[in-house]
Amino acid sequence: IRCIGVSNRDFVEGMSGGTWVDVVLEHGGCVTVMAQDKPTVDIELVTTTVSNMAEVRSYCYEASISDMASDSRCPTQGEAYLDKQSDTQYVCKRTLVDRGWGNGCGLFGKGSLVTCAKFTCSKKMTGKSIQPENLEYRIMLSVHGSQHSGMIVNDTGYETDENRAKVEVTPNSPRAEATLGGFGSLGLDCEPRTGLDFSDLYYLTMNNKHWLVHKEWFHDIPLPWHAGADTGTPHWNNKEALVEFKDAHAKRQTVVVLGSQEGAVHTALAGALEAEMDGAKGKLFSGHLKCRLKMDKLRLKGVSYSLCTAAFTFTKVPAETLHGTVTVEVQYAGTDGPCKIPVQMAVDMQTLTPVGRLITANPVITESTENSKMMLELDPPFGDSYIVIGVGDKKITHHWHRSGSTIGKAFEATVRGAKRMAVLGDTAWDFGSVGGVFNSLGKGIHQIFGAAFKSLFGGMSWFSQILIGTLLVWLGLNTKNGSISLTCLALGGVMIFLSTAVSA
């Protein structure tokens, strides 16, 4: 259960009878995928790494000078000259100064003066180019299975845990398959586009800190620079940016070097996208990844198990997540596992009318040892309800109150669905055939309105939902006002479609 501690969480529900669903994975976010007769899966884009970055340009932001020398000439005696002028490691300046009897010249006039100092770069920052084909995306998957609280967001041991898996995709191999043991396998067909235009970005490294910066900004930095990788004795261009020549006297000129420019660069980098280094690879934390999940090989585990009949206890007080759902960790005293956990939410304890829904599909106890633990997640209705676990006299209950409203949740879900469709863009549509167009249209309606429909009408039977949709269509056909007619027709059509397409 990876997503319960992530604030940016998206719930995606598969269409009834569908074998695939489109998701948008982004750094700092987590996606929970639910479908009829399929286990619930949490998917998170953990890291995006980039390798084989080529150094484009380096800037010196802290330097020192040494070996200063000057040469001067009297008027009419030609130009002052130093051998160091031809050495690229030196920074030199030529000027004219007033000369006369007082400073060793027989004539009054302008004399030539040249001053040089050896330039040494102490600290530099480097910009590297990123090729999209060198990106690698690491995705962690977790099935809502027989897990306890100690396994949440624990990325170790996934090789031997059938509840978890790690997959890596690249532009050259965008397809992967996550093996989930008894739950089958989940196929991923990803489109490795981060949403960032790397043709316009460089990877900047300064003092063990890293950013993504725009090329134009990078090339306009007014500091000494050299092109390409460091060859040991780089040729620094624009050395004068960190060196200041003071007022010249008759035979000498003082040279000083400016202080470190790291603070000024940090100020200019305010708002830039931060990154990290992992050995020789860069780690990015921006952008998104679009994936199509193929769920035809994914299956529920323990459908044929019998119900657990022994007593359950709450190991922890049920807690609310950031998303309005409830996490419950229970301990089973029996030894008759594997068995299914009898769990439901009810409005009252007399009729036990089921409300809400299970995020953890078909929760089971897989071990036959005593005191096995299991964590599950529920989506309670707004208002008061009861969490009921167990059967008969051994069942345990917990009162729950959820604040908020169904309308607010439906609106929030619609906005999130619209954002998801905007990110998917043209990849969500198939114009290759008439059937493809209608299929894409259905998927689009489901992406945007599916979660809201589930919130508003999830407790009704599909037949009642179709009746309401048919009534809206009838009202649309018999209303003389054009805008009201079109609105009723659209709402009725969407409702009829979703009542037959969205899983219960």
Rank of each mutant, 00 (worst) to 15 (best):
L188M: 14
L135I: 01
G106E: 04
C74F: 05
T414A: 12
V256Q: 15
K283M: 15
R252H: 09
A250I: 06
L273K: 08
K166H: 01
Q89M: 11
S433F: 04
E79M: 12
S286L: 05
I468H: 10
S304H: 08
P381R: 02
P171W: 10
E26F: 07
W462G: 07
T353H: 00
N371G: 14
M495P: 00
H249R: 10
G492K: 09
E367A: 09
V255E: 01
N439G: 14
M295L: 12
K124D: 02
L82Y: 03
I484K: 12
W101N: 05
H399F: 00
G109M: 10
V257W: 11
L467M: 14
T120H: 14
N481G: 11
K290P: 15
F119Q: 08
M421R: 03
M374G: 14
V33L: 15
L141Q: 11
L201C: 00
D426W: 13
S122C: 02
D189V: 07
G493F: 03
L456G: 02
G28D: 05
A452C: 12
T479V: 07
Y386G: 00
E26W: 11
L180M: 13
K373P: 07
Q447I: 14
K128Q: 14
R193Y: 07
D10M: 08
V257P: 03
E262K: 13
M495W: 07
W236Q: 06
P39C: 09
E162L: 10
G78F: 05
N172M: 09
L498W: 08
C60W: 06
T366P: 15
P132S: 14
S306W: 00
T47N: 02
L107M: 08
K443F: 09
S385G: 12
D379Y: 03
V355L: 13
C60E: 06
S499H: 10
V473G: 02
T351W: 02
H401Y: 13
V31C: 04
E191S: 12
C74D: 10
F382M: 09
H288A: 10
V23M: 12
V257M: 11
A54L: 01
V434S: 01
P132K: 01
M375D: 01
A361G: 11
L45Y: 10
F453T: 13
G111C: 07
N154D: 15
S503W: 07
W20H: 05
L96A: 02
K340Y: 07
T160A: 15
K93R: 06
C60V: 03
T19S: 02
V388A: 07
L298Q: 02
G425R: 09
S433E: 02
K93F: 10
M345D: 04
W20I: 03
S485P: 09
T366N: 02
S7F: 01
D200A: 13
E44M: 12
E13Y: 09
D161L: 15
T327Q: 07
S199A: 15
G458Q: 15
K124W: 06
E79F: 09
V328K: 03
K209Y: 06
V494A: 14
R416W: 10
W462Y: 14
G232Y: 04
V41P: 00
K301H: 14
T500A: 12
K93G: 14
D22T: 02
V46M: 10
A264N: 11
Q89S: 08
P318S: 10
K409W: 02
E26K: 13
T397Q: 04
P75I: 05
G182P: 02
Y59C: 10
A63M: 12
G425K: 06
V347Q: 13
N172V: 03
I1F: 03
A501K: 13
K128I: 00
I365W: 08
Q147K: 13
W20Y: 07
T414N: 08
P363I: 04
T321N: 07
T32N: 03
N362C: 06
A311Y: 15
E276G: 01
V153E: 04
H288P: 00
K128M: 14
Q261Y: 12
A117P: 06
P174W: 12
I407N: 06
I389V: 12
G259C: 05
A504E: 08
V243S: 00
R9A: 10
L135T: 01
S122T: 07
M345K: 00
F245G: 01
V257G: 03
S51I: 05
F463T: 00
C291E: 05
P318G: 02
P342I: 04
T327A: 10
W236C: 06
E26R: 03
N362H: 10
L223S: 14
K209C: 08
S64K: 12
V502D: 13
S306N: 15
V347C: 01
S112E: 14
W236R: 11
G279P: 00
K316C: 12
G432A: 14
V303Y: 02
N362E: 03
G259A: 15
C60P: 02
I389K: 09
F457W: 12
T49Q: 00
G182L: 14
P363M: 10
L273V: 15
W462C: 11
T366S: 13
T315F: 02
V343D: 02
L196H: 05
S66C: 04
R299A: 03
A35E: 00
F312R: 04
V21P: 00
G102F: 06
L180I: 14
K395A: 06
V6M: 08
S72P: 01
D10K: 03
G232R: 15
M53W: 04
G425I: 10
W211L: 05
F457E: 11
V243L: 14
N207R: 01
Y386A: 06
T267H: 12
S503F: 11
T406P: 02
M374S: 14
V326T: 04
A270D: 02
I496V: 14
I407C: 06
G14E: 09
K454F: 11
N207C: 05
V303G: 01
R57Y: 06
I387H: 03
G263I: 09
L472F: 12
G404D: 12
A413T: 15
L486E: 05
E367H: 03
E320P: 01
L441S: 01
K128R: 15
E367S: 14
R175T: 05
D67H: 12
E320I: 03
P39Q: 01
D87F: 05
S72Y: 06
K110T: 03
M151E: 06
A268F: 13
Q131T: 14
S403K: 00
R292Y: 02
Y332G: 05
N478F: 10
L204S: 03
I389W: 12
L472P: 09
T205S: 15
G109S: 07
S70F: 07
K246W: 07
S129Q: 13
R420H: 12
T231S: 15
S499K: 12
L322I: 14
P39V: 04
L201K: 00
A452K: 09
L25T: 03
L186T: 01
Q36M: 14
M68K: 02
S485T: 15
G334S: 01
L135V: 05
A270V: 15
T170I: 05
G469N: 02
A311H: 05
I466P: 10
F285W: 15
S173K: 04
A452P: 01
D384R: 02
E216T: 04
S51N: 09
S64Y: 11
A504H: 10
E329V: 10
C190A: 04
T414C: 10
Y202I: 12
A311K: 12
F438M: 09
V355W: 09
T233S: 07
M277L: 14
L196T: 11
T205H: 15
T170S: 04
A241H: 13
A268K: 12
G232L: 14
Q447G: 14
W236L: 01
D155A: 13
H210G: 01
